[in-house]
């Protein structure tokens, strides 16, 4: 992809959806996972491309009010185990698990007794982890439940990929002293306006474009 097409892609992606829209999407996924498995909580973690840590992207249930944005090393805990092995897992008694990062759990003010976790993989790239904490005992023990979780994780992976692309686009826009970001904001405002405003805005932009082309020649 050359620089121009990357900018066009970045502006298109940024205009297509805000971070807030994607948060709503991720939140709906963890809310649904929590209901399916009758769990105390569910979380989505994303591997941050800059520092490599796992970051809470969406939380439903315990910790919902304060965990989003918190980060921890991607090698720690069962989330780290699942991310690095790319393998879904159910642990029914975390009190015996030495892999369980109790210090991280305690820092989140909630220590679960059982946990289900699946890697979020998109085109063979491990993007993050979906966790379900303290699911109802009958809803968690078997391979069938693990398969259901893996299936659901596929949906979360697609959503997470969109979030990742959007953020990448945002970084490109912010990189050019924010000028491209301003341009994206103008296009976004134009796209959201009613027909009259959009037509008026397009006339202004056409005039500006002609002026710029005339000056260049």
């Amino acid at each position: 992809m050359n620089a121009n097409s990357e900018i066009v892609a970045a502006i298109s992606t940024a205009v297509a959806g805000s971070d807030q829209d994607h948060r709503v999407l991720l939140q709906s996924i963890v809310d649904t996972a929590r209901v399916i498995f009758e769990a105390s909580a569910s979380s989505i973690f994303l591997v941050n491309e800059e520092h490599g840590d796992l970051v809470f992207e969406a939380v439903s249930g315990e910790g919902e009010a304060f965990l989003v944005g918190r980060r921890f090393p991607s090698t720690k805990g069962i989330a780290g185990w699942v991310l690095n092995s790319r393998d879904a897992l159910i642990v029914n008694d975390l009190s015996t698990s030495t892999v369980f990062a109790r210090d991280i759990a305690e820092s989140t003010a909630y220590v679960p007794g059982a946990l289900m976790a699946a890697p979020l993989i998109y085109e063979d790239e491990a993007l993050g982890v979906l966790e379900v904490l303290d699911p109802r005992p009958g809803a968690r023990t078997g391979i069938d439940e693990l398969t259901l979780l893996t299936l659901f994780a596929g949906q979360a992976s697609a959503a997470l990929r969109i979030v990742q692309r959007n953020r990448h686009a945002r970084r490109i826009l912010d990189g050019a002293d924010g000028e491209l970001g301003e341009l994206a904001a103008i296009v976004s405002t134009l796209a959201q306006g009613d027909n009259g405003r959009r037509e008026a805005g397009l006339r202004l932009i056409r005039s500006l474009h002609e002026l710029l082309v005339d000056n260049r020649s």
Binding site: A88, L89, I90, V91, N92, T96, T98, V99, T141
Partner: peptide, 14 residues
Amino acid sequence: AWPGGGRTRCTGNS
């Protein structure tokens, strides 16, 4: 077998 010399009971396809 779990890291750190431990063991636990869990479910996984692999």
